[in-house]
Write a protein that binds this DNA or RNA. Sequence first.
DNA 1: CGCGGTCAAGTGGCT
DNA 2: AGCCACTTGACCGCG
Length: 297
Amino acid sequence: MKIGYPCINQTLDCSSSRTFRLASYSEQRLIETVSQNLACLQRILEYNVANGLLFFRLTSDLVPFASHEINQYNWQQHFKPQFRELGNYIKQHQLRISMHPDQFVVLNSPNPQTVKNSIAELAYQGSVLDLMELDTTAKLQIHGGGAYGDKGSAIARFAEVYHTQLPDAVKARLCVENDDRTYSLLDCLRLHELTGMPIIFDNLHHECVNNGEPMREAVEIAASTWHPERDGILMMDYSAQAPAERRGKHVQSISESLFHDFLVETEGLDMDIMLEIKDKEASALKAVAVASELGRL
DNA sequence: CGCGGTCAAGTGGCT
DNA sequence: AGCCACTTGACCGCG
C-alpha cells in the first residue's frame, strides 16, 4: 500500500502548478514556467520519498495551455530530458503516479467541440507520463461525465468515443472514478464492461451515491476491474465529509480514527490511497502513521 | 506591496 | 437564475 496526496505540497516554498493568463501567453513565458514547474516537481518528489509518501498526483497545470491551440510550441521535445529524469527518479523509488484531468474533460458531451478538447487534454496528460517513460500502472483518472437526462445513452456515447476516437496511449492509462452525484460505482462498472477501463474508487463519493454496497464490498468490486500486470493494484481516493458543510465537501484535516476504521474494514485488500484532504501532506503523513501501526505498509 | 476580481474549458445540485 | 463545488488557487491590475 502506498499513500499520497494530490498536486500541491504546502511545506515546500515552490509550486509545480504555476501558470499564467491566456492574455499573457508567450513562448518565453511558457518555457520559463514549465522549467520552474518541473524543477519544483523534482523537489516535491524528493520530499515525498524522504517522508514515505509514495503515491502522488501530478498537477494538470504542469504545462500551461498544453492542449490549447495557442500553444504550438514543441514543449515535448524541449523538455524531454527533464521529463525522462523525473521518470527515472519515479521508477528508481517506485513511486505510484496519477493525473486527474479536470472537470472540463467530458467524453460524452453532446457538444463535439467539448469532446475534441477533452481528447486533446487527455492526450497531453498521457504524454507527460509517456515522456517520463512510466509504465501503464501510471493512470489518468476521469469521471463518467454528464447524464443529460438519459444516463444510458450517455454511457453508450462514452463507450463509442472511447473506442472510435481515443488514442491507444490514452486508453492504456484511462480510468473512471465514481463521482458524488451522477456516476455511481455500478455506473462505472457498466463503463468498465464496455471499455475495459479500471475503476478508481472514491469512498466519499460512494457515501454520496451508491446502490447499497457496503464499503468493503465496494472496494472489492472496484479492485476486481484492475489487471495487476497491466494496471497495478487498485488506486483509490480517500476523503471524509467536512462537518456541517455541503455534502461531498472534503474535510480540512484527516480524522485518524475514521481512517483507522476504514483500514480495518478493508483489511487484507491491497490498494494505493490518495488522500483528498485540504491540508495535503500534513494529513498524508498522519495516514502513513496509522497505516504503519496497522501493518498495512 | 497587498488586496480582490478574475481566469480556457462543463455539469448538475443547491440556494 | 445564479452560485458553488469539483483533484488544486494563482495571476494580475489596481489602489
